[in-house]
Design a protein around this nucleic acid. Sequence first.
DNA 1: CTGTCCATGTAAAAAGTTACATGATTTA
DNA 2: TAAATCATGTAACTTTTTACATGGACAG
Lengths: 201, 201
Amino acid sequence: MRPALATPYVILGLLRFGPLSGYGIRAELTRATAGFWSESYGQIYPALRSLLRGGRVRRLGQGGGKRTRRKVTYAITAKGRAALEAWLAQSPRAEQPRNDLLVKLYLSDREFLDKPEAWIRDLLTRETERLERLRRMQAEVPRSQHRHPNVRFWSFALAHGEAQAQATIGWCQRTLGALALLQQARARRLAAAARRKLPFE
Amino acid sequence: MRPALATPYVILGLLRFGPLSGYGIRAELTRATAGFWSESYGQIYPALRSLLRGGRVRRLGQGGGKRTRRKVTYAITAKGRAALEAWLAQSPRAEQPRNDLLVKLYLSDREFLDKPEAWIRDLLTRETERLERLRRMQAEVPRSQHRHPNVRFWSFALAHGEAQAQATIGWCQRTLGALALLQQARARRLAAAARRKLPFE
DNA sequence: CTGTCCATGTAAAAAGTTACATGATTTA
DNA sequence: TAAATCATGTAACTTTTTACATGGACAG
């Protein structure tokens, strides 16, 4: 049997920490996972309806305001908890990564060094910001005990992101250094070629 | 405009290094990228036909044997090279990662520590093997000059995998250590509870 | 009274995997 | 001669994104 679709279970997992709306689920995922998971509304809203039909979540009516009828929050049910436990017990499937930057680097032409250099510089900026954000979040983890019943595990997941970001930052720096050397060597080659063509100029 | 579908361009990129069959494209991708890119036949064969229709590749007839008519190899055309150059010049799109292991860890219940521990142990084994493989490949890179006109860039891409694997290995070890401490603390709590219930047993 | 954020939702397209059918060639 | 590997291909399905429509709440 094929591994179960993750989206509904991730939703159930978040609802275990407290009721949320579809919008809130997306916001919470974006915030708390700091990049190791993402869902689009095109997955969340249909999944919520399917969970509702299956009796795994229930509607809680309006969210915070008095007259606001628009915001619908959902809570997990006992059936939902059971389904979540079963999913959590299954071993995670391996991701098949597709790294656009790496494959372009692998396929790039050495005569055009500036493009890869710019991409790696961008990546360095993004990963540096991500690392800072992860460190701030790690500092907040102990205080968010009430929201997340399992803060140590959250912390482990964030630490993975930290390790990855650090590794990527180091790689960016080393690769930029190597590219700079390649650029210099190319400039020297071009200069030497120019001298041979115009020896007394 | 949306970013172009990567598959046909990755195929063109590989064909720049020499003619390949559909099967060979898959094998070469699996081997050379060591995990940062993957394609299934369900993408490769349709993409090859579409590239053929667009005049970006041409068929080379039988591959190696005498009477073998079954193996069809493809070569890149001038039009294909131009399309590839245009794609390579576009900045790579950011991947949106979905890490099944991390999201399960984040959502897991602290009362069941053994499952996550087993998953992380598996990951540690896989990443250790991957790191060894990447190091062997890095050692081979200088000798494969003839196949890949751009070995330095290939080496950079492999180095990224190495850095990631090392970071993941370190995280696995630290997390396994932390989980072991949690297990011990839990065992002590359970033992203390048992003593309180059966004080003179 | 305008722009931004909050919020829900759908339809269609795109992207990707899986399972299967088929058969040649090589190796043990 | 059996098993493994090489090899091509398709159809169905699943998964995911994107673009769009819609409108309330709120801040400046």
